[in-house]
Design a protein around this nucleic acid. Structure first.
Lengths: 323, 323
DNA sequence: CTGAAAGCGCTTACAG
DNA sequence: CTGAAAGCGCTTACAG
C-alpha cells in the first residue's frame, strides 16, 4: 500500500504539504502542487480512509438499516440512498434488521464503531432504537417517520390508507377484505385506520385478516368466496401481486370478480396483468432525500420542514374497476 | 466517544491489558479480566474500528459490487452476502456499477481505501477490472464467473440456455423469439449460444431481438404476430414478467398462444399468473457461498473447487405448455 | 500475567 | 507557502 510518506518523498516535500493538496486546503505553491499531483498519479496513491477516519472521528460512510432489502420498496430506497451518497462522496454500509430490535441495535452499534456520519433507517415501533441513537449522539434520519417530531421524512400512512380505500370505492364494492402484514409496524396499522375511516362513510362491509392466511391457498379462497369479497386492499404491492396471482390461479377475474389495491408502487406492480393499482411513495426519491437531510444535519444546517414530508400519489390501474 | 484509555483507567490497568481481553488473546488474570469486563460494560465501550483497521491494515468490511441492486436477482445475492457476512462479524459496503466499468473501478478503489478484506462482484466482460484487483492485491470473488480460471463461483450459462430451450421445446414450439438483454454481458451471450445450440437439434425456427424492442409496445406485438411467435425465451425473469404482462395486455394467452421462459427464479416469478417457468440459480446461496470463499482466501485456505460451481435447476411452471 | 512504547497513515494547529 | 510534531484509538512485540 502506497502511503502519503512515499508521495512526499517522491515529490520532495513534507507529508503535510501532500495532505494539503489532497484535501485542497491551505496554501500550496502552484509548482509544488504540480509535483505532488504528479507523484500521486505516478504512485497511484490513494489516501487510507481508516487513517482519515481515525483523525477526524468521522468516516465518509452512511449506515443504512432497512427491514429487508428483498422487498423492492426498500431496494428502491437503498438505490436512492446509494446514488446520492455516491454523488457526495459517501459510501453506504448496509444492514437488514428483519424488524428485529436486537439485530437493529447491533447494526447501529457497528455503524457507530465504524464512525459513520449517520444512519438512515426505517422508524421502529419500539423507541429504544431512537433513544440509543440520541444517547450516542449519532445523526439519524428515519425514512418513514410517522409523527411530526424528530428528524426524518414523514409519510402520511393514514392518508395513504384513505387513498387506497377511495381507489376501491370507485369500483362499487360491497364486501372488502383488508389483507394486512404485521400490525406492530405502525405504518401498516395507520393505513388500516385510514382505510376504515374512509370506508365508514359508505355503505360497504369490510373484514380484515392477516397475510398469514394466504399460506393456505384453498382456505383463503374459501374465505374470499364465503364472504363474497369483491375487493381486496393489501398492505403493500408485494402482497398485492401475490394475492392477485393466487386469485387468478383459482379462476377468479381481476378486477371483474375481485379488484385489488396495493401500496408502494414498486416497479413490478406495473408489470403484471392487470397492473396493480397502488399508492406511490416515491421510494427512490425518499432515499435520496434522506441522504440530503442527513448531510445537512451533519453540517448543522437547518433542515427545511417542507422537504420532509413525502407526497403520496394514486396510481389508477387495471386491477380496479374504475370507469 | 469512550476510548480504551478510559476503560483502562476505570479498570485500573493498562490499555494493553484491556486490548487483550477485548481481543481475547494473551494471558490475563481472571480477576483482572472481570474488572475490565465490568468497566467495558459500565462505560458501554465499543472499540473504534477505524483505529483497529489502521493498525491491522484490514477492516472487517466486504465490498459488494453489483450491477444494480434493483434487480431482485442481485438483491437476493446481496441478502445472502449480508447474512453470512454478519454471521462472521463482517459488514457489507455496497455499490451499484450499472455495468459501467468506470463506476466499477471507482467503487473498487474506494473499497480498497476503506481497507476492505475483499470484494465480491459480478464478473466483467472487460478484464481491466480483474487486472486492477490483482495488481492491488485485493482478494475478490466473482459471483458469476464464466470460465474455470480465477477465483469465483462459476455458473454454466451455456447449459442454462440449453435448459431454457428444453423448457420451451416441451410445448411444441414452431416459432421462438429469444428476447435478450445486453449481449456484451457474457452471461447473456452464453445463454443464447446454449439456447441456439439446443434448438438447432429440432425443427423449429427462432429469431432473436433486444429487450429494447419492448419499449414500443404495439410494434413488439406486431412483430410477435407477424413472425407467428408461439414461445419467448427471456434473458431473465424481470424481462419475462414484463413481457408476459405486455402480451396479456394485448389479449394473448400465456401459455396457450405464447409460452414464456425466464431465468433466475426470482421470488416474483412464482407470484404471477401463470407462474413463470425459469432456471434457478439459487442467488441467495450464491451470495453466501461467495462470502465463504472470500473468507477462505483471506485465511489463505485452499478453496475447494467443488464448492465453486453452482448447479442449475429447472422450474417447470404454468407459463409453458408442458403436459 | 502486565505495562511502556512504538507505530498504523493520516490531518491540523503551530511556528517560521 | 512549508515542515516538524502531536495526536486520532487501537494492537502488538518486547521487556519484565
Amino acid at each position: 500500500m502506497v502511503t502519503i510518506k512515499e508521495v512526499a518523498k517522491l515529490a520532495g516535500c513534507s507529508v503535510a504539504t501532500v495532505s494539503r493538496v489532497i484535501n485542497n486546503n491551505g496554501y500550496v505553491k502552484a509548482q509544488t502542487k504540480t509535483q505532488i499531483e504528479r507523484a500521486i498519479h505516478e504512485l497511484n496513491y490513494q489516501p487510507n480512509e481508516a487513517a482519515r477516519t481515525l483523525y477526524k472521528r468521522k468516516s465518509k460512510m452512511i449506515g443504512l438499516l432497512l427491514p429487508d432489502i428483498s422487498n423492492p420498496f426498500f431496494t428502491l430506497i437503498a438505490r436512492g440512498v446509494e446514488d446520492i451518497a455516491l454523488a457526495h462522496g459517501f459510501q453506504v454500509l448496509i444492514g437488514n434488521s428483519d424488524n428485529d430490535v436486537d439485530k437493529a441495535k447491533d447494526y447501529l452499534s457497528t455503524f457507530n464503531a465504524y464512525n459513520c456520519v449517520g444512519v438512515i433507517a426505517t422508524a421502529f415501533a419500539d423507541d429504544q432504537i431512537e433513544k440509543l441513537l440520541v444517547s450516542q449522539g449519532i445523526h439519524y434520519v428515519f425514512v418513514d417517520r410517522v409523527k411530526d417530531e424528530g428528524n426524518g421524512i414523514s409519510m402520511n400512512h393514514f392518508e395513504g390508507g384513505q387513498l387506497q380505500a377511495r381507489l376501491v370505492l370507485e369500483g362499487k364494492p360491497k364486501n372488502i377484505l383488508i389483507l394486512h402484514l404485521d400490525l406492530n409496524i405502525e405504518a401498516f396499522k395507520l393505513r388500516i385506520d385510514g382505510i376504515k375511516q374512509e370506508l365508514n362513510n359508505y355503505d360497504v362491509s369490510y373484514y380484515d385478516c392477516s397475510a398469514e392466511t394466504l399460506k393456505n391457498k384453498s382456505a383463503f379462497i374459501s374465505l374470499v368466496k364465503d364472504l363474497h369479497i369483491d375487493s381486496i386492499i393489501c398492505s403493500n404491492d408485494v402482497l398485492a401481486i401475490e394475492t392477485m396471482g393466487l386469485i387468478q390461479q383459482f379462476q377468479l377475474k381481476v378486477p371483474e370478480d375481485i379488484q385489488i389495491v396495493g401500496y408502494d408502487n414498486i416497479p413490478f406492480s406495473a408489470m403484471t396483468f392487470p397492473q396493480i393499482a397502488t399508492i406511490d411513495q416515491s421510494a427512490y426519491f425518499l432515499g435520496q432525500q434522506a441522504v440530503s437531510i442527513l448531510l445537512k444535519l451533519n453540517k448543522n444546517c437547518v433542515v427545511n420542514q417542507q422537504d420532509n414530508t413525502l407526497k403520496l400519489s394514486t396510481k389508477r390501474r387495471g386491477s380496479i374497476r374504475f370507469e
